[in-house]
Amino acid sequence: MFSTRDLLQPETFEQAYETLISRRSNTVLGGCAFLRLGRKKMGTAIDLSKLGLNFIREADHRVEIGAMTTLRDIETSPLLASSFSGLLPRAVRNIVGVQFRNGATVGGSVFSRSGFSDLLTALLVLDCEVTLFHGGTMPLAEFACGAYEKDILTKISLGLDARAAAYQSFRNTTSDFSVLNVAVSCLGGRWLVAVGARPQRARVAVNASEFLSQEGGAETNASAAALLAGAELSFGTNMRATAEFRRALCQVLVKRAVTEVKQCS
C-alpha cells in the first residue's frame, strides 16, 4: 500500500498540475487499483474527483471519455456498445471483475500505458486522441510510445466513425492478464492491427495494417497479414508465456480478428 502525507482535491486543473510538478513524490490518484500495489510514499496525493472528469459524451462526431470514467462505465455505455462493433466494452470485460472495473479508471489505464493493457490495444485501432492538461491533445499512437512525463490526462476522444472492429485476447484464466491481445479495425478499406501484452506495450502492426489496406481482408489475406504481424513485432517472455508462444498466438489472434472484422463490415 502507498502512503501519503497530504491530500489535495483541486477545483482547477492549474492547481492540480502545479501541485503535481512541484514535488517528485506528488502523485495523481486514479482508481488506485494499481497504485495500491506499490509502496509509494507520496507527498501530496492529488484526487481529481472534483474536476468533473467522469463522463462519456458525444460532441461533434466524437465521443469524449473523461479520465475518471471507470472501466465499468465503458462496458455498460450504450453509445460504446453500438460504436466500433462494441470493441471497447469487449476489450475491458475480462479485467478482473465487475467490482474492480467499477473502480479502475480510464485515466489510470491509459496514462500508465501498461504492456498488458487491454484498453490501450483496443484504443490504438480507433481514431483516438489523448488530452493532457499540460501536453495538450495528441494522437494516442504518439502518446503511447512517448516517455512518462508528469502530466494530467483529462480525457480521451474518439472519432465516431463507422469503423468495424474486433477484439481478441488470450488468457490463461478468464480474468487473468492477457497473454496476448489483438485489436483490428477497418474503415473504408483502411485497416489497423494492434497487438498488446507482447508483453511490452501495445503497438500498431504497420506492415500488417498496410498489407490489409492494400489487399483487403479476404481469408488468405488474413493469414498473410497475421504472419506479417508476427514477424514485424517483437515479443518477450515473462511468467505467463514465452516469446515464441506469443508470436504464434499473435498469428492466430490477428487472423481471427481480421476474419471477424471482415464478417461484420
Binding site: 490518484l29 482508481g31 488506485c32 487499483a33 495500491r36 484526487d47 465499468r72 465487475v98 467490482q99 474492480f100 467499477n102 473502480g103
Partner: peptide, 10 residues
C-alpha cells in the same frame, strides 16, 4: 449502490 472493492477504495 454499485459494487466496489472496499480494499481498493480510498
Amino acid at each position: 449502490g454499485k459494487p466496489v472493492l472496499s480494499c481498493s477504495t480510498l
